[in-house]
Simulated assay, not measured.
Amino acid sequence: MTTILQLSDTHIVPRDELCSGQLDTTESLTRLVERITSIRDQIGQIDALLVTGDLTDDGSAASYARFKSLVAPLDLPTYVLTGNHDAREAMRAAFADTLPKTGLLNWTRRVGGVQLIGLDTLIEGQGAGRLGEDGLAFLKDALSQAAGAPVLLGLHHPPFASGIEFMDKIGLIDGDALRDILASYHGPLRILCGHIHRMIVADVAGHIAISAPSPASTFSYDRRQEAPVGFMRQEGGALLHRWDTGFQTITIEANAGSGPFPF
């Protein structure tokens, strides 16, 4: 069995600052890490941590250093993806041991029985994402090398519409091209993303795509065109992805409830 822990959209900022002047993202991530650590004996072995973008809110070296210190208690091999709030070169420097030395931050790694593929969707200075010709070519090659093996494909921007209009306006620009490539892969494949700060499950080219919650905040699922633009003070948790004879995804809530009580 192979188990991957997914975090997303942690939006860490430099010390003594609040994200968007409202959110103490350091405290929310600290609580989630403590929660995961406290139940490690219950959930079993975890093989790696995948972070699907927006590790930081400002893309600064100080914020990346702070993020690394906050997740260090998990003691897991860590693989990261760019989000629209990240900065490519600062991220490259912070995670030099796992990221390409030049170019886009696309990568692939074998973790246990799963091929992990990470795609860089960052357009610096913009909210929307794009894979571009280089990213699409990288994916096509990585899937060819996977040769039907189980794949977890990570990217920040979801390759599906969420129904949250102000987020869909800054979604993945070349999602159609991505779907064309994914349709040709006939092995087990699950798509993992972030960006929309809530868990949504969708079908993409015959594969399951899942967006992760954010420990920092939530966007309301409000399909009205006049829906207010902004975040909610509601902390999400993390996702746990297991591969055995198939994929299984489990939510880890941000806070433990009371109990268990007999029934």
Results as ranks from 00 to 15, higher is better:
Ala48Asn: 09
Ala65Gly: 15
His11Gln: 06
Asp134Val: 04
Glu34Cys: 06
Leu99Ser: 04
Glu34Leu: 08
Met167Lys: 11
Met167Tyr: 03
Phe263His: 11
Leu70Phe: 12
Ala146Lys: 02
Pro260Ile: 13
Gly44Leu: 02
Gly237Pro: 00
Leu143Met: 05
Ile123Ser: 08
Ile200Tyr: 00
Gly171Tyr: 00
Leu23Met: 03
Ala96Gln: 09
Gly236Phe: 11
Gly113Gln: 11
Ala65Thr: 13
Asn84Val: 07
Leu104Asn: 12
Pro215His: 01
Asp9Gln: 06
Asp75Leu: 09
Gly53Met: 11
Leu49Arg: 11
Ile250His: 12
Asp86Gln: 08
Ser220Glu: 12
Arg40His: 03
Ser258Tyr: 02
Arg179Ser: 13
Cys193Ile: 04
Ala202Gly: 01
Asp47Cys: 05
Lys101Met: 06
Ala48Leu: 07
Phe138Asn: 09
Gly154Val: 00
Ile181Leu: 15
Leu182Tyr: 09
Asp41Ala: 14
Cys19Ile: 00
Leu136Met: 09
Tyr79His: 15
Ser60Glu: 09
Tyr221Gly: 00
Glu17Arg: 15
Met167His: 08
Thr98Arg: 15
Ala147Phe: 01
Asp41Gln: 14
Thr3Leu: 00
Pro262Thr: 12
Lys169Leu: 04
Ile181Gly: 12
His157Tyr: 02
Gly118Cys: 07
Asp222Leu: 10
Asp141Asn: 05
Val114Ser: 05
Ser20His: 13
Gly118Tyr: 08
Glu27Leu: 08
Val114Asn: 07
Leu5Glu: 06
Ala149Asp: 13
Gly113Leu: 04
His186Asp: 14
Met199Leu: 11
Ile181Tyr: 10
Ala254Ser: 15
Glu226Tyr: 05
Pro14Tyr: 12
Leu155Phe: 02
Gln42Arg: 14
Arg35Leu: 04
His186Trp: 04
Phe247Glu: 00
Ala146Glu: 02
Leu143Lys: 04
Pro228Phe: 10
Ala87Asn: 14
Arg242Lys: 13
Ala61Cys: 02
Gln115Ala: 07
Thr121Lys: 05
Ile181Ser: 12
Asp203Cys: 01
Ala205Arg: 14
Ala146Phe: 00
Ala65His: 13
Glu253Phe: 08
